[in-house]
Design a protein around this nucleic acid. Structure first.
Lengths: 245, 245
DNA sequence: GATGGAATGACAAACTTCTGACAATTAGGA
DNA sequence: TCCTAATTGTCAGAAGTTTGTCATTCCATC
């Protein structure tokens, strides 16, 4: 279903069809290692993106905002260490686990100086890498301690990107999830449309504020008991919206 | 008069102290760009200082302590990167957003190494720069999540835009919150209608002074134990009003 | 092309703000 | 103390904004 299954190297970002699950970005140039890592994480239920070089890795990182990055330090084009630095600068919360052949203690220090969260030296056991990634993810999970969040008769699983209302599955789009997540993470606070546009939609696109309203509408229709009388996604007239669980 | 909501007191949950006109320092040598940036931030309600070179920029920075710095990397005299370094060394909390023609990843790394908080590459959309500045400012004030203020039997939460009196929810409009916030921030001081109109209503609109009275009336009705005998929002005959908690 | 999500535009509905009039109050001088 | 002028309180609609909602268009993906 994707080229990692055979042995050809992947250079362009390869996103898996199955978008569910926590996203892991693997930046690795060795085709064999690509394959191993990909299968490993996929089998554990993660979504995996594999990039063959630093540049496409960075691009993919910006595009998909993965939950964690596995980075091989031996990369063409850009040095792995620079990739690490940029990622850490742009998004310090994202755990970066470095895979390398380095064994020198001095170099390990350097590594951690780059901002890497952890490192695994080749050759490594898959289980060790997996354990370290999961540990790193666990450490980072402050904003939403539990991957699932409940309010009223709704239950949201942000990791699985699935939602249920009154025990019936409700399908939300990617944007709707993002928006809902931002609300959950900033519960009770009044959030202006501007802020929502910036934080949820990002800086590249500039939709009208009407867009926000529309998505709120959709969320209400899908999650509120009575969309006409919103209880959780409240309008704050003249200011924005706020989420009250 | 809508999107400057983000820097005006109530709509974006802001920190209590010093809410009047957030100051932005623009260090940019190109006169045309100076004009554009100046107008842009001014229109959004920010106070703007523009400097044409690094040295005066640094001087201004030290003198006025702006809330954020917009820095063009192509500067005469001192290199932009040095300006950035110095600012970050002297005052690490101040967000520095770099504007440059750089697009190379390697250079971006360098940029972030300098301590810049974000960067925008030319040509950029004004909205993107604005969005990034606002995002940077927002990030800086996160620690103070809820800002509540109490007086008498009233409790105000400016972040949630909610108010209670004697444990009963009271609904205030956006303007009423803004006004109340300004009073809270300048407690005990006599505030003239002129000042209130300028600071709370902004420079775009020019309502009559009767408007202020009306809003005071509303606030009194909603928050005072006896609106006819105001205790907290006092009238100072011939001068204005003052808030006494 | 067909599909589904996202964005936009338009219009009505909901809500807030403003205005102007008049009443009530205050200050200060006769 | 009384009177006058100025200032402030209060109210009810008018005027203006903001939001809900739907239909339509756009866009990318299949």
């Amino acid at each position: 279903m994707l080229q990692n299954e055979n042995n050809s190297p992947v250079t362009a970002p390869e996103v898996l069809p199955t978008m569910t699950g926590t996203q892991i970005l693997v930046i690795e140039d060795d085709p064999r290692m690509q394959k191993i890592l990909h299968r490993m994480f996929r089998d554990q239920g993660y979504g995996v993106t594999v990039c063959g070089d630093g540049q496409s890795g960075l691009d993919s990182f910006r595009a998909s905002k993965p939950a964690a990055v596995i980075l091989d330090l031996m990369l063409p084009n850009i040095f792995g260490r620079d990739v690490c630095k940029v990622i850490k600068a742009e998004h310090p919360e994202t755990p970066v686990i470095v895979v390398s052949a380095i064994s020198e203690v001095a170099d390990k220090v350097l590594l951690l100086e780059l901002g890497a969260d952890d490192y695994v030296t080749k050759p490594f056991s898959p289980r060790e890498l997996m354990a370290r990634v999961q540990a790193a993810l666990r450490r980072r999970q402050k904003p939403i301690a539990t991957v699932t969040f409940s309010f009223g008769e709704c239950e949201i699983d942000f990791a699985k990107m699935s939602a249920r209302r009154a025990d019936k599955a409700v399908s939300l789009t990617a944007h709707e999830f993002k928006l809902l997540k931002y609300f959950v993470e900033h519960a009770e606070r009044v959030l202006s449309r501007e802020e929502l546009l910036n934080e949820v939609w990002g800086y590249q696109s500039y939709p009208t504020t009407r867009t926000v309203d529309n998505h709120i509408l959709k969320l209400r229709q899908k999650l509120e008991p009575d969309a006409a009388e919103p209880r959780y996604l409240q309008t704050v007239y003249g200011a924005g919206y706020k989420f009250v669980p």
